[in-house]
Design a protein around this nucleic acid. Structure first.
Length: 570
RNA sequence: GAUCUGAUAGCUCAGUUGGUAGAGCAUCUCCCUUUUAAGGAGAGGGUCCUGGGUUCGAGCCCCAGUCAGAUCACCA
């Protein structure tokens, strides 16, 4: 990158970098820096005169002659530092203060500080700097939001595109963003604790799969060169985890990155995180209790309370949660009883109640449409919706009391599904028939139905799987609820975005610019009006062309008393 | 996929019937030894997202495109 493409401030910082080296100061030293305190330690355990060694970015510099204040940002927060010229430079040579600190140290640079604690007249805990060390020079100015005494943020770095594309900068200057991700990690930790305390074990299963099963979704397809076969990126980890239950593990769980080649919006990212857990000898009733205890535990661990705010809603993850069958729910919100109704009857009801349907939809799908359209949005507080129709749950055990239903529940919060669980189907013959049923739906045109049968999974079931209950939780959505974010992008470090275009700046002249340039390169210097005349270009084209040449540094326009002169820059 | 909104200095944003761009912070120069987003004085800094068009003249109007956000549709 040539310096002409850099902003003024970037050029200045590179000059400062060179000057530091001239002074014998390495801007990117190799040695470790012996940090022994964080900003938070200092504030929480203040002791007058205590010696500390800290490091971080300098985020504020207020120079007042021979004394200056600054602010160091480390991983735990900010702490004020005080630089005094005669303390840093006790001898005659004041270069370290006057030049290195005042001129060559830029906001965003990493420095190390040895000093001692004191309180200013304003009562602010401050580190009096005895010595400072350049640890890493920052060549690009960070956005610089400021917070005033009332907590109002000025010049906030808010542009979502810039924030998501440059998350590193977002994290440096927006502490509330960092907090979201700390909470995200707390959620993972809390779940792991909960599972590990029960001796369920964390496992890993393949992401590259010959058949992407366990959910109805469009997978990403890739190709393995050595095997010369297509492979799919996982859309769910269900079928692999159940194989492990077959293998004799009693409880297994996995935090899995899943990939779905579908639309993107504020609740869908192409890759997302799910947690799935399978426990042998349990059923979905047990799993409901387990789920509500888990969520109560995690909400408490993340926020210190079971209550959470999401937009206009106040929700409480305190167990237990109400349990409503799908039939009851539809009856409650529509007055329509789906019990024993035929596919035709259901389709007719949908059509007369403004729900879009088509011929590919089977009975289960129609019921799901009714629920999605009329009921789902009403469940703000955590609520279990139970007993789903058999057709839409091909991996779920038939209901013990009603063969048209399955032992399945979803947990709804703020009108959105965040968990899904079954008494897992372990009858291999039934499972094979359900897969075949899905295949028929797929042939009928239902693009959500699975198009492949995972015969290896059926073989595993034939060896025998104990009665098992499984649960899947959408981690990103749960983080959204626990941190009050309406957009999934806010809870992912690096949400998927269209790639930025780098280095595609044109250096070639376009036709208009060439015409002007050809003339001026022969004449070297001429009156602007005359040059314009000779090019024969329209006003617009002339204007664009001459401006472009000027910006490229090829020509220079000078104003004299009575004319404009164009010169060729050699 | 549809509709709407937006893109201007490092950051946040103004920009009047269309007349060659402004502010605050940041940067640079000078003064200042305890300041609390913001001490004082001065200066520099622009591909107005891209490409066309209308016009004597476009940041502004028109067309096409890029990227983003919101709403809707789709979506285990």
């Amino acid at each position: 990158m040539s310096t002409s493409e850099l902003s003024e401030q970037e050029v200045q910082r590179r000059e400062a970098l060179n000057r530091l080296r001239d002074l014998g100061i390495e801007p990117y030293p190799a040695a470790l820096y012996p940090v022994d305190h964080y900003s938070s330690d200092i504030k929480e355990n203040y002791e007058e005169g205590k010696k500390v060694v800290i490091a971080g970015r300098i985020m504020r510099k207020k120079i007042q002659g021979k004394a200056s204040f600054g602010e160091i940002l480390d991983s735990k927060g900010r702490i004020q530092v005080y630089f005094n010229r005669d303390e840093i430079c006790p001898d005659e040579d004041k270069t370290l203060y006057n030049e290195v600190f005042k001129k060559l140290l830029d906001l965003g640079d990493f420095i190390g500080i040895e000093g001692e604690l004191f309180k200013t007249q304003m009562g602010e805990i401050t580190v009096r700097v005895h010595a400072f060390t350049m640890l890493s020079k920052s060549l690009k100015p960070l956005p610089l939001p400021k917070t005033d005494a009332e907590g109002n943020v000025h010049d906030a770095f808010t542009n979502p595109e810039l924030r998501y594309r440059q998350r590193y900068a977002d994290l440096v200057v927006n502490p509330h963003v960092k907090e979201i991700f700390i909470k995200r990690t707390k959620l993972f930790n809390a779940m792991r604790e909960f599972f590990n305390a029960r001796e369920y074990i964390e496992v890993e299963t393949p992401i590259l799969q010959p058949i992407a099963g366990g959910a109805a979704a469009r997978p990403f397809k890739t190709h393995h060169n050595a095997l010369d076969i297509p492979l799919y990126m996982r859309i769910a980890n269900e079928l692999y985890l159940k194989r492990l239950i077959v293998g004799g593990f009693e409880g297994v769980y996995e935090f899995s990155k899943n990939f779905r080649n579908e639309g993107m919006d504020r609740t869908h990212n192409p890759e997302f995180t799910a947690m799935e857990i399978y426990v042998a000898y349990k059923d979905y009733n047990w799993m409901m209790e387990f789920t509500e205890q888990l969520l109560e535990h995690t909400a408490q661990a993340v926020n210190g309370t079971t209550k959470a705010t999401f937009g206009e809603h106040n929700i409480d993850f305190k167990a237990p949660y109400p349990r409503v069958t799908m039939r009851e729910s539809i009856l409650e919100f529509t007055g329509f009883d789906i019990e024993g109704k035929s596919e035709e009857h259901l389709r007719g009801w949908c059509e007369s109640n403004g729900i879009e349907v088509d011929d590919t939809m089977g009975r289960g799908k129609l019921i799901d449409e009714i629920f999605g359209e009329k009921c789902e949005g009403n469940y703000i507080q955590p609520t279990f919706i139970i007993d789903y129709p058999k057709e839409m749950s091909p991996l779920c055990k038939e209901h013990r009391e009603d063969s048209s239903l399955t032992e399945r529940f979803e947990l709804m919060v703020c009108g959105k599904e965040i968990a899904n669980a079954y008494s897992e189907l372990n009858d291999p013959i039934d499972q094979r028939e359900r897969f075949e049923e899905q295949l028929k739906l797929a042939e009928r045109g239902d693009d959500e139905a699975s198009q492949f049968i995972d015969y290896d999974f059926l073989r595993a079931l034939e060896y025998g799987m104990p009665p098992t209950s499984g649960l899947g939780i959408g981690i990103d959505r749960l983080v959204m609820f626990l941190t009050n974010n309406q957009s999934i992008q806010e809870v992912l470090f690096f949400p998927q975005m269209k790639p930025e275009k780098f280095g595609e700046k044109k250096v070639e002249l376009n036709d208009n610019e060439k015409v002007i340039f050809d003339i001026i390169s022969k004449e070297k210097s001429m009156a602007l009006d005359e040059l314009k005349e000779r090019t024969g270009l329209s006003n617009k084209k002339w204007d664009k062309g001459i401006k472009a040449l000027g910006k490229l540094g090829l020509t220079k326009v000078t104003k004299t008393d009575d004319a404009l002169i164009v010169d060729l820059v050699e």
